[in-house]
Amino acid sequence: MTKINVSTTINGDAVDYLCDAESTLLDVLRDQLGLTGSKEGCGTGDCGACSVLVDGRVTCSCLVLGAEAEGRTILTVEGIAEGGKLHPLQEKFLEFAALQCGVCTPGFLVASKALLDRNPNPTEEEIRFGLAGNLCRCTGYDKIVRAVQAAAAEMRKG
């Protein structure tokens, strides 16, 4: 079996890896690169737990082949905080108790970041539709929506 050589950028770092043609980006992140923050909840793009940003757009990494990452820029949940400083979204998720089990949280954070990067002042409806691709079974979404609203307000302050 011939593996594919991929050069890409993940969380700001240049990364090279070899992968099978069948491997998804999620497989590569989790099994080869040790970036297990992205979770596999379904493997079919229906839950959003594996959300990453590819060239700034939120994507299910389970629906991207590892080979497709060649030359792209990837951001995973592990890259959201800057050094030891949490991103406002991370802070607000904690402050608002927007997680219970926490397994969907990485996907929500990534999707929320994508949302706020494009729309710094979303309405509740825009937040709800913007995060519709992320399933959470613990919270009923209430505290997640409030955390995103609070983070947006915080980020608008600069």
């Binding site: 297990t36 992205s38 596999e40 949940v77 926490g102 397994v103």
Partner: peptide, 21 residues
């Protein structure tokens, strides 16, 4: 009162280790 949870930072940074991790 409503303090931050002790496992919180791990869970918002992707460090928390779940079953498949």
């Amino acid at each position: 009162s409503r303090p931050l949870r002790p496992d919180g930072v791990d869970k918002v940074t992707g460090r928390a280790r779940f079953g498949a991790d």
